[in-house]
Design a protein around this nucleic acid. Structure first.
Lengths: 343, 343
DNA sequence: CTGAAAGCGCTAACAA
DNA sequence: TTGTTAGCGCTTTCAG
């Protein structure tokens, strides 16, 4: 009699109340872990099984104004950096009982704003994002709604939110200096998109190192581009074609690294004999490539873990006064075999 | 007077009805694109802006029993294969007006079932997934609810659902034969996890090719493992240590490929002089590695696109009788420089 | 084209 | 411990 057919409506709390002869509120309490008489617990549990009951989250959210889900928004679902962080955060939040809605915005600010809107509509209880840097209306709304917000990788000036960064400036400054000390005088850089915080800061490190070292700078040595492999390929080709005397190159991203490697291989240029190469990230590949590529390693695990920790903390202390914190995590440089001396 | 403060409640359709002096239903119709008198349209639009109104999706879902979101569930958010497909599907569905909830289950069947449950609770209107192969209770529920379901990469026997596969068996059968024709007699294989459809079928292709070629088979040449880089590293080491006379190896996954490459490099074994290597996927890396790696290329773009198409189709024809279809997409083999002849 | 009213499934007082 | 009840914000008849 309580059988269900293909396509029939889900059973509700009401059905199971009817089935057990108990009140809705009792059933609800059971479901939410409240105290219910043992005999009734059993009855309810059985009814739930028999009727195939499953809580309707839409109704629950509507009532409680909490969705128990966190939104995560990243620029590029194809990027190893993004997805690794994603994966770590998801792990931690799942453990804490939160669901996760993952969105990518394809490095497109317009889509970024659309996805934020989507997440807003889904009433996520918190948001972790790698922003472009643009301050969208929706971000202000998250803040206005007092929804916990954690920013990763790139800050949002003027936005009061926990922010997790790495030492972009430092790392590229030091690396440039390191190359200089090895005798390099014509050092190229592929900073990616310099309107994005990481690109801008890494470029800045390179630039200031040049200034401090009193190394004159040829702007052909700076090839701004997008972040993808094809961008890296093009940028590297320009760099190589425009600077016959280039001896080293600093590549500021994973995708760019792939592209650069492709271009260099095609031209039959030898690393590190003809050109020294250093790259951010290049996870996995740096080790197996020959020569092994020297890279700046970001603490991805830590970033993800910290992001999850912070959002959980904010969630737990909601309503209380809070002061946004910025964390600047150290990267470290692993010098493998792609950097040589200039004589 | 309609100002809002930090943390104040969102304004609702009711507020904007009050603000404009119109009825709820009129406002609702406006929001849903119904016909409303021009003067009122303007009033409503303005009120929406002033009050910062945003539709509450929980309420909407509760009422309509549709969420306008599709769930996507994949085994491994760190896998290039998975995330590329993800990204493509997301694109298409977003264009069609659907939101997307992406989940990973970390190759863990238990978590797979938890995530399915999460998606079920979120009342997704459709589900696209790469399953482990286990038939969870939740999958049955999706089907019972008449929720469109599209399976990718691995089928679910007995489940009536659109399924998108590639020619795993064929591709590895042919590749094994190809290696045989080049003189290889000791061909190793790293099929990954042979309880997973793709691993099983690729192994089967290898095995049947051996049988058909009357090539005796040494079981040390088959190293079953997980799918990650470290699994590939271990499997390759075993393969290499156990078979001093091995001349070729077929690697059945991206992560495995990274691991195999690492092991081979460490042992200073030359490709293809000492060992020939062929690998599934190895996206991006196959081209830039030296020697360039010969790979079996899966039509990832097409898989993603087809998955999106199918789910959209199913969504549009909901309720109508439907017959599940299985698509088997062709892979193609790109022979680069990692396979040599045996004399 | 507009308005009144019912109710989706659930939670959370409050009363018993 | 259990039951009654009032909505959460929205869509959707059905009248007007």
């Amino acid at each position: 009699m309580y059988s269900y057919f293909f396509g029939e409506n889900m059973s509700t709390i009401k059905d199971i109340a009817k089935h057990t002869g108990l009140a809705l509120s009792t059933v609800s309490k059971y479901i939410n872990g409240g105290s219910v008489r043992a005999a009734n617990r059993i009855k309810i549990a059985e009814a739930i099984k028999v009727l195939g009951y499953r809580r309707n989250e839409a109704a629950r959210s509507l009532k409680t104004k909490r969705s128990m889900t966190i939104g995560i928004l990243v620029p590029n679902l194809k990027s190893h950096f993004d997805t690794t962080i994603l994966s770590i955060i998801e792990n931690h939040l799942t453990d804490a009982g939160y669901g996760v809605i993952i969105c990518g915005y394809h490095q497109n600010p317009k889509m970024e704003s659309e996805k934020l809107n989507f997440l807003l509509q889904k009433q996520v209880d918190g948001l972790i994002m790698i922003p472009t840097g643009q301050i969208h209306q929706e971000i202000l709304e998250f803040i206005k709604d007092d929804t916990p917000l954690v920013l990763i990788d790139r800050p949002l000036p003027g936005i009061e939110a926990d922010t997790i960064l790495v030492d972009n400036f430092q790392s590229s400054y030091k690396l440039t200096t390191f190359l200089f000390e090895l005798g390099h005088r014509k050092i190229g850089i592929m900073p990616g998109n310099d309107e994005i915080f990481t690109g801008k800061m890494r470029l800045k490190g390179y630039l200031e190192a040049h200034r401090d070292l009193r190394l004159s700078l040829d702007y052909n040595l700076v090839q701004i581009s997008g972040w993808d492999m094809k961008d890296g390929y093009e940028a590297a080709n320009k760099l190589l074609n425009l600077n016959s005397d280039i001896t080293a190159c600093l590549v500021c991203g994973d995708g760019l690294g792939y592209g650069a490697l492709k271009a260099i291989q095609e031209k039959n240029i030898k690393i590190p004999e003809d050109i020294s190469l250093a790259c951010y990230d290049l996870i996995n590949v740096a080790e197996i490539f020959r020569p092994r590529i020297s890279t700046i390693v970001q603490p991805i695990e830590k970033i993800g873990q910290l992001a999850a920790e912070r959002i959980l903390h904010l969630l737990a202390s909601k309503g209380k006064p809070f002061k946004a914190a910025t964390f600047k995590l150290p990267t470290h440089f692993i010098d493998r075999d792609s950097i040589g001396k200039v004589h």
